[in-house]
Write a protein that binds this DNA or RNA. Sequence first.
RNA 1: GGUCCCUUCGUCUAGUGGUUAGGACGCUGGCCUUUCACGCCGGAAACACGGGUUCGAUCCCCGUAGGGACCGCCA
Length: 473
Amino acid sequence: MTIRVRFAPSPTGYLHIGGARTALFNWLLARRHGGAFILRIEDTDRERSTPEAIEQILESLRWLELDWDEGPFFQTQRIDLYREAIGKLLDSGMAYLCRCTPGELDAKRERARREKRTYLYDGACRDAGHSDDGTPYVVRFRSSHTAGDVVFEDGVVGLIRKSEQELDDLIMARTDGTPTYNLCVVVDDVEMGITHVIRGMDHLNNTPRQIQIYRALGAEPPKFAHLPMIHGPDGRKLSKRRDAEYRAQGFAVSALEYREMGYLPHALVNYLARLGWAHGDQEVFSRQELVELFSLEGVGRSAALFDAKKLRWLNQTTMKSASHEDLRERLAPHLAGKGVSLPAGEAGQRLVDAHRERSSTLEEMALFLVPYLSDEFEFDAKAVKKHLKPAAAPLVQALITKLEELREFGLQEVETAFRAVVEEQGSKLGKLAQPVRVALTGRSRSPGIFEVVWMMGKERSLERLQSALVEMA
RNA sequence: GGUCCCUUCGUCUAGUGGUUAGGACGCUGGCCUUUCACGCCGGAAACACGGGUUCGAUCCCCGUAGGGACCGCCA
C-alpha cells in the first residue's frame, strides 16, 4: 500500500509555523516512502476564508519547497460529496434532523456550566423522528453509545481510549445546509484514499468521533499521528495577535515572515524538523537527509518552545554552505529593499563569500553590503569617535599615498601597501586597520581589511580615506 | 469544571533497569587574530515532586503538582 498523506489548512489567515511543520512532516513522510502529498483547502467557513489567505498559504509552501502531488482541492467545490454522505447517513438512520435552535443550545450549555456539569448535547431531537417539512433544522450524527470505547493507536502518542458515553451527537450540516468540519474531513480523507492523517495535537480530541463517522460510512479509519504543539518563546500558545511583541524577540508566527526577515527556507525547514523530531545528536540536515531519515518514531510527544536564537544560528550555518547562486538569488530582494544590487560575476561572489559567515540573516548581509554598493550608508557614531582620531591621520595619509601609487589593485598589492606603511611608521597593523575599516564601511566590524579595500576598489577607497582624513583633523 | 495529552540543563533534545546522564542553541573562560565572525579548547547548567515494584530506578506502575488541548450551526 502506498502512503497517501494530506495537508489541510483552513484559509482564515497566513500559514503559521505550527501549520508549516505539520505540512513538512506530512511531506517528509510522503517523500520518504514514495507516497503522495495532497493539498486540500478547508474553506467551508465562508465567513472567514479569504482568497488572500489561500494565496499566502500556497506561497508559503512554495517558499519552503513543500511541493504537493495532488490538489489544491477546495472543500467548497466538493459540497455534493458531503451532501451525498449526509444523505446516506440519514437513510441508514446514522444521522437525524435536529430542530434545537442556537438559542436553546446556548441556554443548555450555560446551565451546564453554571451547575459545573460537562455539557453534552442531550439528544432532544435524537428520537423525535423529524422530517423535512420546511422548518429549519440541522443534521446531527447519531453517535453510537453501545459499542463501548473507541480505541486507536496514535503514531505519536500511543494508545488512545475514549468512552463513547462522552461522545455527543455532533452537527454535520448547518441550518443553511453546508456541511461542517468533522464530516468533511472524514468524507474527504476516505474519498482521497488518505492512509495517514498527520496533524496537530489540537485534533486529538476530535479523532474518536471521526472514527465513529468512518465506521458509520463503512470505511476503514486511516492511521493517525498527532504532532505536539509549538508554543511561543514565552511558553504560551502561539497568538497571531501578539506579532508586535514577538517581533521584538526575532520571532514571528507567520511562516512567510521568515522570508522577509532574511531566513533561508531550508534553515526554517531544518529548524522545524528538529522541533519535535530528532535523529540522535544530529542538528544539521540536508533536505536529502531529512527525507531519508524521517520517521514518525522519531517524533516526540511534548510541546516545544520556539527558540529564535537557535534558528538564527542554524540560518548562519545554512548560509555558510549554501551555493553562491542560491544565496545571490535570495539576497537580491533584500538588497533591492535598500536600493542597491550586487555586481555580476566574481566581484559579487567575493562580496557574498566574505560576508556569509558573519551574517545571521540575508537582511543582515544586505546591511553589510550596502557600503560596497553605494555611497549612501550610515556611519556608526561610536566607531567614528573611537577610531577616526587625529593620532591615526599620519598612518592613513601614508596609506593613501601608497595606494595611489599602485598600478595593480589586487588583494596582494593592497596587503603589501598596508604592511609597508605599518613598518615605515613603526606602528601596528591594528592601528591602521581599524580607522580604515570605519572610514570605508562606517563600522568597526567587517571582513579582513585587505579584502575590504580590495573589494571596495581603488577609487572608492581613496575617496573615503580622504574624507576620513578631514574628519580626523 | 469534564475529558484527553504532556513533563531530562534557560531552550531544542539523546539516552538506559546499573552511564562521570550525551549533543546543540544560548551564556561564559581561553586560543586564533587587523575588527567582527568562523574555527578550536574549556566551564556553569537537567532527570518536577511523593509513593510503590526491584538488589538497584531518570527509565516500569500509581498518585500529586505544573503546563497544554478540546468541550461551536470554527477548522
